[in-house]
């Protein structure tokens, strides 16, 4: 597949002084652009045999006993820029617990760990590009950046499409969270419409009565050029 060049205007900038960690970790020189080659146009394929029974159930997958928090379904589709579904995409998620604490030795936030919450899950999209997780709503949490910065509630997403050049890590936010526009990491994205596309709406059509709410988060990966007149070039 011939990947369409990445539109960098819809992405965060590398150097964003409001997010202090980016200051020393952002390249100063221009990226070297070129056409994708087989190294970018192919990628690893993961089979359903990778998945355990509870991999997409973050409420139960750590100990088998339910995690504490507001039960939610997070679902959506993985599509490409040509609006085609991406089946067989590996989607991995990680998040803080209901109190805003990660199970990680570097997270010393005073909110308690939940003994039944590990904080990660994964699934593979179906033929129509769809995926679904059952989890708890993560808490907002403070972080050392500005004097009083807080992360909005969010779930981290890592997605493998069909090629290594489509590799994407992003974060999903929740409709209505007043912390979203205050967040220095959200603000690394200059295009407001690109920010809006990271905010999952409440989806009552998938909420389960007396059980859980639902949020919908569609993910769009780089597309590929469809043409009957492909100019085959070696390398670049």
């Amino acid at each position: 597949m011939t990947l369409i060049p990445r539109n960098r205007g819809g992405h965060p900038v590398a150097y964003a002084p409001g997010y202090k960690s980016s200051v020393a970790r952002s390249p100063k020189l221009a990226l070297i652009s070129g056409s994708a080659t087989p190294s970018e146009q192919t990628g690893p394929v993961f089979g359903h045999d990778l998945l355990g029974k509870l991999d997409s159930n973050l409420i139960l997958n750590f100990t088998g006993e339910p995690a504490i928090g507001e039960r939610i379904i997070v679902h959506g589709r993985v599509l490409d820029e040509n609006a085609r579904p991406v089946p067989g995409a590996l989607v991995e998620v990680w998040q803080a617990n209901a109190g805003g604490r990660y199970r990680h030795k570097k997270d010393g936030y005073l909110a308690p760990l939940d003994p039944n919450f590990g904080g990660c899950g994964r699934t593979i999209t179906g033929e129509d590009g769809s995926y679904e997780f059952l989890t708890i709503r993560p808490g907002a949490y403070p972080w050392p950046n500005g004097p009083n910065d807080w992360r909005p509630m969010h779930i981290h997403f890592s997605v493998f499409g069909h090629s290594f050049g489509q590799r994407l890590i992003t974060q999903m936010y929740f409709e209505g969270d007043p912390l979203i526009p205050l967040c220095p990491i959200v603000k690394t994205i200059p295009d407001q419409s690109a920010v809006d596309r990271l905010v999952a709406p409440l989806d009552m059509s998938r909420a389960m009565p007396l059980d859980c709410l639902a949020y919908k988060f569609d993910i769009v990966l780089r597309g590929s050029r469809q043409t009957m007149f492909e100019n085959k070039m070696e390398g670049l």
């Binding site: 819809g10 355990g52 991995e92 990680w94 990660c120 890590i169």
Partner: peptide, 28 residues
């Protein structure tokens, strides 16, 4: 056409999601 979803940093806890056993989250 659609627009590619914006990237966001993987953050300090990327290993929880991508290599959980490496950071001691075992059994999942």
């Amino acid at each position: 056409t659609l627009t590619e979803t914006a990237s966001q940093t993987a953050g300090p806890y990327v290993h929880i999601g991508c290599t959980p056993n490496f950071v001691g989250i075992e059994g999942i």
